[in-house]
Design a protein around this nucleic acid. Structure first.
Lengths: 256, 256
DNA sequence: TCTTGACTATGACGTTACGTCATGGCATAA
DNA sequence: TTATGCCATGACGTAACGTCATAGTCAAGA
């Protein structure tokens, strides 16, 4: 059984142009051809198309898909991991752009409406201060004599009230995202991604945080009642869950 | 004071070609020109370039930057927020791709190691319960708000333990039959026949399952590690095989 | 003054994965 | 036979430049 190009396009939900293109770049050449030059696709062509579309849906460029589907000895596993790394990089870029855009918007707000800004946080004031001292504490308790603490002091001392507000909001979002994943296993990639975001959040806002430091911090979250309470009031058990997830995260980082 | 193109390029850390390009698209035309046609940039041009590069660093497309810097009445704030929204969307896409890639990698891992530990769960209570919640889950995840889910709930709630046992045995038989055909092509009529049986099985026992739903389900079997594992422990690669076979089945049904 | 090397100009092609015409041949049912 | 619909090839456009290729310009050293 063979199918004309329009049929195939309909079945696979791609355009005829796409199939023309795949033929032109020798990614998918139809097995048969009529006397008048019409393309005829066989079942095996459909299967290959499935494969191609699968990898396309994962965001692979066509050039790479070509080698993947045409070389049976190709290491798909390695390709997937390389692709994953590229995606992580892309995410980092987007995150950085988001932060930059947010800051710009914030700066515009500041310049334009600084006056009526004072009305805001009355009770918020306290929350911010609490938050500030909490992180300062966190660093001091563990690395009071180290460079990390000095770095934290140096960086945080320049933060404005708005900075703290933003940092707190980001942290809250990360914690909320983690709380939403508490029914997953701590090894789940989604969970690990949130851990990664927390790690990045520390690096961006406080001090260069090694995985060892992160592991240490996570231990404090379960062993120090004040931190435990802070996490558990978001969702009971979150402190422990954070701890476990971070441990896995650090173990995986070690291997690299 | 004016600067030649090379000087400007060095100062702003962009290429000469980039400035040529900006001139060509009328994003930044130098204010002066020598008799021999050399571009000469004034200080005001440099400032404009600064602006352009700033918005570029935020990821704005040049076409938009053009209106931003050339129209003083332009609402930068709104542009920034729209851009922020776009970035959030991009992040979501990247996150989704990451999850998909992770699941695929995980499924590959499982497929290679799962085979050794299959002979578990026979027909004990727990397996049945797991099975029941699994299908309930399956429906809820995709059509939690639709009629299909309600129908599934209504019908499955009346099933007895014996019903579940029968349903599971039927499903297991279908899966086993499919596993036995994995050396065939997915377009093979025998394979397609088994897909048809699976489709009927769904229709009889759970809810009216359109081909679109079936296609959606099959995608979940490969993208959700839990389902992938369930199929692959019958035979490694079965999840992917089911997926491909169902896709062909649905594509062929579309034609009708 | 002549040459040399650094700098500049324009033009054109390549990149990704197709969309969108434009033009014209082929197929099939009425 | 014709109307209608599907098919083919070719060409241009996309975003933001990189990378030649070819050729004119400028300042400095011999």
């Amino acid at each position: 059984m063979t199918y004309t190009i329009g049929k195939v396009a309909d079945m696979a939900h791609v355009s005829v142009r796409t199939l023309h293109y795949y033929d032109a770049i020798d990614l998918l050449n139809p097995s048969y051809e009529t006397a008048s030059g019409y393309r005829l696709y066989a079942d095996s062509d459909l299967e290959l198309l499935q494969q191609i579309l699968f990898f396309r849906s994962l965001g692979f460029p066509l050039a790479q898909i070509k080698t993947i589907v045409q070389d049976p000895a190709f290491d798909r596993r390695k390709a997937l991991e390389a692709h994953r790394t590229a995606l992580l990089e892309r995410r980092k870029v987007v995150e950085a752009l988001l932060v930059a855009v947010d800051h710009t918007i914030e700066a515009m707000d500041k310049g334009e409406t600084m006056d009526k800004k004072d009305m805001f946080d009355a009770f918020d004031e306290r929350a911010l201060e609490e938050h500030r001292t909490k992180y300062a504490d966190e660093a001091k308790q563990r690395w009071g004599t180290t460079d990390a603490y000095a770095e934290s002091q140096r960086r945080t001392s320049k933060y404005t009230k708005e900075d703290w507000k933003r940092i707190q909001q980001e942290a809250a979002q990360i914690d909320a995202d983690m709380a939403a994943l508490m029914d997953h296993k701590v090894t789940d990639p989604e969970v690990q991604d949130v851990v990664w975001r927390k790690h990045e959040h520390f690096n961006h806002n406080f001090y260069t945080c090694s995985v060892e430091m992160l592991a240490g911090l996570s231990e404090m979250w379960v062993s120090d009642a004040r931190f435990t309470a802070n996490y558990d009031k978001i969702k009971p058990g979150l402190a422990q869950f954070w701890h476990d997830a971070v441990q896995v995260y650090c173990m995986k980082s070690d291997r690299k």
